[in-house]
Amino acid sequence: MLFVVDAVSPTAPPRGARGLHRFANPGRFLRLAGRVLPWVSAIGILLAASGIYWGLFIAPADWQQGDAVRIMYVHVPAAWLASAGYLSLALASAVSLVWRHPLADLAAVEIAPVGAGFTAICLITGSLWGKPMWGAYWVWDARLTSVLVLFFLYLGHIALTRAFDSPERGYRAGAILALVGVVNLPIIKFSVDWWNTLHQPASITLSGAPTMYVGMLWPLLLTALGASFIFAALVLARLSAAVMERRIRALLAARAEAA
């Protein structure tokens, strides 16, 4: 019983949020996560491993960059997931602020470290790619700087959600920061078009055909899809742990009250 009392808001959810609130029941969420998680993890590992093997050993080297182009197969998926992860953080924050969905708070808290990790991968592999190509590990280029700002936004969210005695205040402050930080996403995306940058423009767009050799495109798409599944699996696993930890706190509080 405490499981439900702890997790579900005492006020009835708004009409539009009732579908979402079906998953506010931690027991239901844990059962669903337990069933989905092994599949999501296995698919992610399989896709990423195939993409990495293809990218490292089958795909051709670039005529200008040589084998350094193979860094692309880890750098680009990490960059996409850094932005996509932040978008999911902002969505969870919006759901938390508007509908007070109890799992949305926890989801935001658990997405932020994983997003920061993938942003770190993007920045580090970008530096390692930049050194042989540009002659420098780092330049204060618009794309690099805006991704660094994204990394700081993630760190800010992690720090802010843990900075208050009351977790609810931390969740609310973090949610506001996450929503304000969304403004950085179009800046990252269009920085290579708006300013003169060392970073190359996008090779894959939704509006046109990719400007990349198909033998390089497929392993890139495979690693990106695999990394997306791995990202989702990590967040699901962390969220399951967070739901159980919340339940433990509730049980301990109930026990202390009874004693």
């Binding site: 084998d67 350094a68 193979r70 990790g117 993938f118 592999t125 042989p132």
Partner: peptide
């Protein structure tokens, strides 16, 4: 070529997740 940059890149991309 560029193994000194490729190996650490893949190592970071595997170790962090």
């Amino acid at each position: 070529t560029h193994l000194a940059f490729i190996i650490p890149s893949y190592a970071v991309a595997l170790v962090i997740p």
